[in-house]
Amino acid sequence: MIAPLKTRLSLVWLALSAITVISWWIGSKHGQQAFVSSAAITYSVILMAALKIRVIVSEFMEVRHAPPLLRHLMDAWLAFLVISLLGLYSIGARF
């Protein structure tokens, strides 16, 4: 089913906002923000940020209609960034 574009844009915005609130909530415990090292929080927050970026790029920036080269370049950049960030975090946690 394909929603009219206006509805689709609103749904996209709603989803992005929901992910934002969830990532904020993940960092908190009992209404208080927890400031202890946590790989679970970091992984989920960075992956959710990546998801948000991919949705912004493909829906708002209309890359889903763009030639494959542009889509692949944006995906390659995002994959590189996420792997670098999570990789550095994981390696750093061992020292």
């Binding site: 934002t20 990532s23 927890a34 927050v45 960075i46 940020a49 960034l81 960030l85």
Partner: peptide, 10 residues
Amino acid sequence: IIFALLYVMR
């Protein structure tokens, strides 16, 4: 990304 790295990652 700035939000994730500065504010919420732990």
